[in-house]
Design a protein around this nucleic acid. Structure first.
Lengths: 179, 179
DNA sequence: ATAATGGCCGTATTCAATTCAGCGGAGAAC
DNA sequence: GTTCTCCGCTGAATTGAATACGGCCATTAT
């Protein structure tokens, strides 16, 4: 519906403040966005139209960026996950970064506080393809070194970015926070 | 709808082989799962019920793990992203791991090939909360050291795991693979 | 005090999801 | 080569959810 054409996070306005119901809605939709508005309203204590109105507002405001399917990597035969650490001293402006962000293997790009590196999460068919990707990255202007961790097995890969505290069950030993 | 109660990826059967249409469907739903089956059928060349049947099968087979909303981290005030590298020499069996996977801050857990560490992607309110999380992790039985990269700014954080080659535009300079 | 606003509810309508019956092609058995 | 079986597709029919609307209530501003 709403065209999410931007692969790169451009400077969107920060979403406005949310109340408790909004946060509970996000907590529900982060786990499962296929439920009906009737079900959603049930869980957060609203009528279906009210729940719908809230969700529309959350979409408009940008709090809900998108709604997507989470795919099992094995289904598409891209099982090899790696974290690549590239040194970017001498990195220019953004055009090369935007090119990297178009690589199909690159799922995430992060800069690191107090360091001159970027951290990429990548997924490839096999080690051979990873080597090729590293070679391409190393040829990218501004990249002066690369280093990669290959991930053997993934236990947990939550599809979404934020953990919303209210909606996650807290294990018993965490009831008393240490700080 | 389908109860996705398992936070940890247990040993599910690997999804069966997919044909070209299945992969195109995944490619569409990975970008936007809010479209109607009529629209989906249009894009992949099927009638609405056929597209629906395919998607149901993909869900049943596990190729589509889940369908979720992607939340803007700023909306829930959990902006600090970090990668935590914990040494797990002496790590026991799985119960402690399962506890870690319940921490609301922990979004991903990976093991690393040829190493004795695990790599966690975590998101917290601020550095203070990160410190607290690191302290809790360090107290977890089996964890012998922790080290963390704090991510300052995120350029690209694709919501989904696999890059499906056919559905991503290939930049011109990548037309000739180097390997 | 009163008007205006915003958010909710219940109902009504529209549109999509889902079911079903029937068709047709691919492959197996013979 | 022929026939049978199975699987997946289509198109129409039905169910059910998404959406629009009118009215109510609480809060705030004038």
């Amino acid at each position: 519906m709403d065209e999410e054409t931007d692969g790169i996070l451009q400077n969107r306005p920060a979403p406005r403040d949310l109340d408790a119901i909004d946060r509970r809605i996000l907590g529900v939709l982060v786990d499962d966005a296929t439920i009906s508005y009737a079900e959603l309203g049930d869980r957060v204590g609203l009528s279906p139209p009210a729940a719908h109105e809230r969700v529309k507002r959350l979409r408009r405001s940008g709090a809900i960026r998108n709604t997507v399917a989470i795919i099992d990597p094995r289904a598409v035969k891209k099982p090899l996950l790696a974290f690549v650490h590239i040194d970017t001293r001498g990195w220019g402006k953004t055009p090369e970064l935007m090119a990297v962000s178009q690589y199909p293997e690159v799922e995430e790009i992060h800069t690191v506080a107090g360091d001159t590196c970027m951290l990429l999460k990548v997924r490839t068919e096999d080690t051979r393809a990873l080597e090729g990707l590293l070679a391409r990255l190393y040829e990218t202007p501004g990249v002066t070194s690369t280093r990669s961790y290959v991930v053997l097995s993934t236990y947990l890969e939550r599809p979404v970015q934020p953990g919303i505290t209210e909606t996650w069950p807290t294990p018993k030993h965490m009831a008393e926070p240490l700080y």
